[in-house]
């Protein structure tokens, strides 16, 4: 039996090496490939296609216009302010989120009574719907009956309710606070997982060598967190960059474009100007920016490099 089996196996492997491997693998990866094609590649391709068309306001495709839509996008006088807003929005939210999460994860890594409860409580903003969380904040900041305004007037900080969500700078700040609030759980848990993977020996070695607490943290723990930090930062950048619900609810009623990021601007172009073609072009720009950020990040931080 075994004598006959061995040569058969060899020949099979040979044919696999000669190019049959793809066909053999197809039934296994096919469904996943199909899914990726249908929900990732096709919409992205369609978006890029739309960005080169002229589409009427009611949605009929009129003709191809090449890169005209992009020319319009880049000559848009609102664009610099919107890009600036986007940069501020992403940088502030991601930086503050990561710093706070590092602290929080360190805290949650220490054993203390009720730790499980606290750990679960941290998940709540993540588990709740973002739209709901944001709407709660939005109503709290309502100038006439919001609880935040009521509190501030009652304790005497304000004379009367202030429209936190009605003016560009306060509304943007508020959106940033909410974005940090909902980003912390994921970031904290990613870092916490990283912390728990740090071998105890390295910490003991640091102690033996007489490193102080800060030294241990910055020279021993932080370098070993590189992997999880990289994932946390990258996912957060993409997520925050493309965030619509928080900004749409908090800054949506502000007239003009002074509180818009690229994402909300795309939405406004679609909803109010009804320009499917221009908003597609903007989406392509958005997509390109994200890709560039990710590429730069991967290149410079080398998150996959071994420590």
């Amino acid at each position: 039996m075994s004598v006959t089996l061995v040569p058969k196996r060899v020949s099979r492997r040979k044919s696999a090496q000669e190019g049959g491997s793809f066909l053999a693998a197809l039934p296994w990866v096919g469904p996943a490939l199909l899914l990726i094609l249908a929900i990732v590649v096709f919409p992205a391709g369609y978006m890029i296609y739309n960005s080169t068309r002229k589409i009427s306001q009611v949605g009929t495709d009129l003709k191809g216009v090449g890169f005209d839509n992009f020319a319009k996008v880049f000559s848009d006088p609102n664009l610099p302010r919107i890009l600036l807003n986007t940069v501020v929005w992403v940088v502030v939210v991601v930086t503050v989120t990561v710093v706070l999460s590092l602290v929080l994860a360190q805290f949650l890594n220490k054993p203390f009574p009720g730790r499980t409860l606290v750990r679960m409580a941290v998940i709540v903003p993540w588990a709740a719907s973002v739209v709901m969380t944001t709407t709660v904040f939005y109503y709290a900041a309502e100038p006439n009956y919001g609880i935040l305004n009521k509190f501030l007037t009652d304790v005497g900080v304000l004379d009367e309710g202030f429209g936190f969500t009605k003016n560009a700078v306060p509304a943007m700040s508020m959106a940033i606070v909410i974005a940090i609030f909902v980003s912390i759980p994921f970031t904290t848990y990613t870092i916490l997982a990283g912390l728990q993977a740090i071998p105890n020996e390295t910490l003991e070695a640091a102690k033996m060598d007489g490193a102080n607490r800060w030294g241990t943290y910055f020279l021993v723990i932080l370098p070993q967190l590189r992997g999880s930090l990289a994932v946390a930062v990258l996912i957060n950048i993409i997520n925050v960059f493309n965030n619509l619900p928080i900004l749409k609810i908090i800054t949506g009623s502000i007239p003009g474009y002074s509180a818009d990021t690229l994402m909300t601007y795309i939405f406004k172009v679609l909803q109010f100007d009804r320009r499917l073609d221009i908003s597609s072009a903007l989406s392509v720009v958005n997509f390109a920016i994200v890709l560039v950020i990710v590429a730069i990040y991967v290149k410079t931080v080398k998150p996959m490099k071994e420590v």
Partner: peptide, 21 residues
């Protein structure tokens, strides 16, 4: 892990940027 992470990031970027569709 590297493969999974890269694929995941690429998919996430595509998905999130094309959600206007």
């Amino acid at each position: 892990l590297r493969g999974v992470a890269v694929a995941g990031v690429a998919a996430a970027a595509l998905l999130l940027t094309s959600c206007g569709f």
